[in-house]
């Protein structure tokens, strides 16, 4: 398959007429898009050639496909640069073309906001990357993949335990620091396996908030892996529910 994107003019034409097209987004078939553009193919070719791949739509609970689909999408599209992977035209193009069926399954549309936020970038760019139906798969993979582990997606599995974990990690600016991400998640996992600590939503959120606060007073990026580990150890030890 060739990777397609929606040129800006077509993207704005669709995004600007969400209200008028809402019912189309509830259909299994996306043939209306070509009709909307009067028979013309609205997509452009990125010239990136890929083996055909699909995303899993087989589970009763769509959320249960996230891990598999992160692995699939991130590994197939790992060649994307950070700049390419933060481009609305790419993800909006894929949401409306190759992965229309997946979007129908995972993010069924109830209202206009669902379309704006899941098929397009409805928020600031940063937040949109964590909300768009496909971009989120890639960026969770980017933030949590660790090729040095026996299971490179072990940290991904951990963060998918609770959707709030994803928001609390990717929503923080420090999550651009991959070493910090990996060390924080790894240390929390260690606390679970070694000390039987249960990393609850509340604890995860508290640890992330503390790291964020710390980043306001020190240059946290100057820390090394050992410093990050000690920092998280201390935060977990001092945590009171």
């Amino acid at each position: 398959m060739r990777l397609l994107f929606l040129p800006e003019e077509k993207l704005l034409a669709l995004k600007g007429n969400i209200q008028k097209n809402t019912d189309h987004y509830k259909q299994q078939n996306n043939s209306w898009i070509e009709e909307y553009f009067q028979g013309g193919d609205p997509y452009k070719d990125t010239k990136v050639e890929l083996d055909d791949f699909t995303l899993d739509t087989s589970k009763d609970r769509p959320v249960d496909t996230d891990l598999h689909n992160i692995k699939t999408l991130y590994s197939k599209l790992s060649m994307l640069s950070q700049a390419q992977a933060s481009d609305e035209r790419l993800w909006a193009g894929l949401c409306h073309s190759h992965f229309w069926g997946y979007m129908q399954y995972r993010w069924p549309v109830k209202n206009e906001n669902d379309i704006r936020n899941r098929y397009f970038f409805g928020y600031s760019k940063r937040r949109s990357l964590e909300r768009n139906g496909l971009a989120r798969l890639w960026w969770v993979g980017w933030a949590t993949y660790d090729g040095k582990r026996e299971d490179p997606y072990e940290l991904t599995r951990f963060i998918l335990r609770d959707s709030d974990f994803i928001v609390n990690l990717l929503g923080r600016n420090f999550s651009s620091n991959k070493l910090l991400n990996r060390t924080v998640l790894n240390t929390l996992l260690e606390h679970e396996s070694i000390y039987n600590t249960i990393v609850s939503r509340k604890m995860f959120r508290a640890v992330m908030e503390q790291i964020n606060m710390l980043g306001g007073t020190i240059l946290i990026d100057l820390y090394n892996e050992d410093d990050y580990k000690k920092m998280v150890d201390k935060l977990v030890m001092n945590y009171t529910a």
Partner: peptide, 17 residues
């Protein structure tokens, strides 16, 4: 001396000493 360069929109962040 340290310089922190950040592009939030592409998750780019780097500190230079």
């Amino acid at each position: 001396y340290c310089v922190h360069i950040e592009c939030a929109g592409t998750f780019y962040r780097e500190i230079l000493t």
